[in-house]
């Protein structure tokens, strides 16, 4: 049984349908990348999984339990965390306070939290240096690190990361992807939303979305090596 199972998921904004019935599985312990051009429906997909949007039809199963339509707070509690598009750090709070807020649903589990904070600082030493700095004054890359670190503080089993590399230099994007690898190696299942195909070498499985549908599912390597596939689905840019 896959950790996450999405079946015939349909979601829209008001009367406008966006997801037209999508199906996919995410295996525990793997990194799955969700690729697609702007407007394909990637953010809509992960926001629905995280409980920010209510589906009009279909089901989402996490660890054997139906979670579609459940509220976000409950999902974070059971271990499903979204690092949102655009980082959305708390700008007038310090790095440390941002991380503290990540622990909200688990804040009684002091030992695990302390260990996780240490891990976050090990992944992102710059955050340790700037722990008392206001998040709004960090650079874009540092804010992305903080957003990922804050997500980790909720002790997730499945972490969804929406467009982590957007607006980052290629070198910085690579660093972030390498950390995602480590997060995955350290035991967290990851879904990473990207337009940057450079992410493929860090992915076990790949999904490609187009106009609200999943048009390709396969291994990350297969998609990376197959020029034809890439050109077809992602407009050739590599």
């Amino acid at each position: 049984m896959a950790l996450l199972e999405v079946r015939d998921l349909r979601v829209g904004y008001g009367a406008i349908p966006v997801l037209q019935g999508i199906d996919f599985d995410v295996e525990e312990g793997k990194t799955t990348v969700l690729l697609g051009l702007n407007g394909a429906g990637k953010t809509t997909t992960v926001a629905t999984i995280a409980g920010l949007l209510k589906p009009t039809a279909g089901s989402i199963t996490f660890d054997g339990n139906r979670i579609d339509g459940k509220d976000t707070a409950m999902l974070v509690e059971v271990g499903l965390t979204l690092v949102p598009e655009g980082r959305r750090v708390f700008p007038a709070l310090t790095v440390e306070q941002n991380l503290r807020l990540g622990t909200w649903t688990k804040r009684k589990r002091k030992a695990e939290i302390a260990a996780t904070q240490e891990r976050v600082f090990e992944y992102f030493p710059i955050l340790a240096e700037r722990r008392l700095q206001l998040a709004g004054t960090l650079s874009g890359g540092q804010q992305q690190m903080l957003a990922i670190g804050r997500g980790l503080m909720s002790l997730p089993r499945l972490m969804l990361i929406d467009e982590a590399s957007l607006g980052l230099s290629p070198a910085l994007a690579k660093t972030v992807f390498q950390i995602v690898d480590r997060i995955n190696e350290d035991g967290t299942t990851v879904i990473i939303v990207e337009q940057n195909v450079g992410v493929l070498r860090h992915a076990d499985a790949a999904l490609v979305m187009e106009k609200g549908e999943i048009v390709y599912q396969g291994s990350g390597d297969e998609l990376r090596r197959g020029d034809e596939l890439r050109t077809t689905y992602l407009g050739g840019s590599a």
Partner: peptide, 23 residues
Amino acid sequence: TDLGLATLATSQEPTASRLMGIR
């Protein structure tokens, strides 16, 4: 207090606050 911090967070970024599990 954590609740006070959550109140400040909610005022700054309501969506991110929901994603932290804050009601």
